[in-house]
Nucleic acid binder design. Structure first.
Lengths: 120, 120
DNA sequence: CACCTGTATCGATAGACGTCAACATAGACA
DNA sequence: TGTCTATGTTGACGTCTATCGATACAGGTG
């Protein structure tokens, strides 16, 4: 089950998933895929976890490095899973610890959705 | 009630609310404010409405121009209110119609949160 | 004034979501 | 093998939220 590909926009990988938000109205399907990513960042705890990983040395961090966000350990695990399912983080086990790292491609795509829209 | 200021990051207006997501871990308060904006775009219907406004001529649109997203009129109104409360849209009544327009400052700030993080 | 159209609000409801305690799993080490 | 630590999963519970029909409000027109 954890092997299932749920990354919403890594399949095309060439296109940033969707056009900038001001180019044309998004289709229902485009909106569905894109909303998953924004929703993933739409929770304060997830935003802190993501920021903690992104700002950590090398753009990756062990769960033990970032789990001090005021919620229980299962909740941290749950939120990291959500971020992973949204394609924003990837994880890798190295010995005892699990390391999460940011997916820069997806991050850049999201950013361009907004900055290109803001510029025009 | 509609005059109440709920825009989460228009008060500073100088700073993009928070540092890029990879500069340092967000504080709880920063995450709280920022998550509101991402959450607003984390719904497919809202994303379509926002994209419809942003891509409309002049960056603004009447509700009647964009309300064909497959949900009832009260639901459209509800989502537009959410986007407005998040600071992403502003509205103005002109005669019979209400026009919504994008708030480019906020949009750019969100974009930089992501693009600066992706670049580094 | 009455009536029509466009938009917002109210109240209810079903489903999604965040959270936790309890338990399960994976790897390290003795 | 057994035990300890780190992380993930399960199940339950309360709250939030998306949605709708009904209704209210605003502005134009007659």
């Amino acid at each position: 089950m954890s092997n299932v590909k749920v990354l919403p926009l890594l399949e095309p990988a060439l296109e940033p998933c969707c056009p900038p938000l001001n180019e044309r109205p998004l289709t229902a399907e485009e909106a569905e895929r894109t909303a998953v990513m924004f929703k993933a960042l739409g929770d304060p705890v997830r935003l802190r976890l993501f920021s903690a990983v992104a700002s950590h040395e090398g753009g990756e961090a062990c769960v033990c490095d970032i789990s001090d966000v005021g919620v229980s350990q299962p909740t941290v695990s749950h939120h990291l899973k959500k971020l992973k399912e949204a394609g924003l983080l990837s994880s890798e086990r190295r010995g005892t610890w699990v390391y999460y790292r940011v997916e820069p491609t997806v991050l850049a795509a999201m950013g361009q959705l907004l900055t290109k829209a803001a510029a025009a």
